[in-house]
Amino acid sequence: MQIKLIGHTQLVDDVFLFDETGNLDWVNAKDHLDCTDGQAIALSAIRTCYSHNKPSEIVELEGEKYFGSDAKDGEGGTDADRLLRHIVKSGHTSTLEHINFTFAIEGVSRSLLAQITRHRHFSFSVQSQRYVKLESDSKSGGFAAVVPKTVENNDKGDTEGVYLDALQIIQETYNRLRELGIPAEDARYILPNAATCNLVLTGNLRSILEFYSKRGAKQAQWEIRELAELMKAAVIEVEPWTESFFKVK
């Protein structure tokens, strides 16, 4: 499995604060306020619900108050961190839906795909078994497959060999069906859950936290649990303030 964050919500350059010439200057403002783009967007969304100020003015008029003072709840960070903690605890997490992350996910099984598509608020673009050729002599070299650790490490006979032999039989049967003129969209019916695929996935912060709370738990299946941990790490790398909100049920 490979995962890479290929995009995430960032502010445009000409929002929020003015420089000495009267031009909007977010770059310097962000350094001054010591916050990420995601935090600025979250503050704008949260305070819009409770403030008479316009959304485009929130960080300009209220940023110093929240990002420039210590948290009043004694739990560390700035008062913006305190506000974010309060929002998450109170369940007002719709305000986090404005922060999106897009991942390139590669080499996961169709079994994992069946599980992750149950999470309704993600967007998916998935490699097609109808249009991507999977014959052994095609560019793909045949379908790849996930081998579970329980199969690799099983010491009761040649467990891995049995597993790989079954995959080889399926590949050979797929090849033969294609040679017989069966279209790929029908030949794919015999491909196993182990067959891998690639996808692009986009989710907002609220949906990613919800996904992690279920799929990061120890009772989740190992492959999707690994994906949940990798997604968490990628989000935290660009928005470190989110780390404390990744919790399992």
Rank of each mutant, 00 (worst) to 15 (best):
N193T: 10
N175L: 02
Y174L: 14
Y174F: 15
D186N: 07
E185V: 08
N175Q: 05
A194W: 05
E172P: 04
E172L: 04
D186F: 10
N198V: 09
A184R: 08
A184P: 04
R178F: 04
P183N: 02
A194T: 05
E179P: 07
I170L: 13
L177N: 07
L177V: 09
A187E: 03
A187Q: 06
P192I: 03
A187G: 13
P192A: 05
I182W: 01
Q171I: 12
A187K: 05
R188F: 01
I169C: 15
A187M: 04
V200T: 14
A184E: 12
T202E: 03
A194P: 01
I190D: 10
V200W: 12
A195M: 12
N198A: 08
A195I: 04
L199K: 01
V200E: 12
I170M: 09
P192M: 03
Q171K: 12
L177M: 13
I190Y: 05
T173R: 15
G203S: 03
R178W: 04
E179D: 15
R178A: 02
D186E: 11
E172H: 09
L177H: 07
Y174G: 10
A194C: 03
Y174V: 15
E185H: 09
L191R: 03
E179C: 10
A184N: 11
R178H: 01
I182V: 12
A187V: 05
R176S: 13
P183R: 05
R178I: 04
N193F: 11
R176I: 07
L177F: 11
I170K: 00
A194Q: 05
A194M: 02
Y174K: 14
R188L: 07
E172R: 00
V200Q: 10
L199H: 04
C197T: 15
N198Q: 11
T202I: 06
L201H: 00
L191E: 00
A187S: 06
I170R: 01
I182C: 08
A187H: 03
T202F: 00
A184Y: 10
E172T: 10
Y189M: 11
R188Y: 01
A195V: 06
I170D: 11
E179S: 15
N175G: 04
R188I: 06
A194H: 06
E185S: 09
D186Y: 09
L180A: 09
Y174Q: 15
A194D: 05
Y174M: 15
N193P: 06
T196V: 11
E185P: 08
E185W: 12
Q171M: 13
A187F: 05
T173A: 15
T196M: 13
T202V: 04
L201F: 01
R188M: 08
P183M: 02
N175Y: 00
E179T: 13
D186C: 07
R178C: 00
L191Y: 06
G203R: 02
L201D: 01
R178M: 01
P192W: 08
C197E: 13
E185A: 10
T202A: 05
R176P: 00
E179K: 14
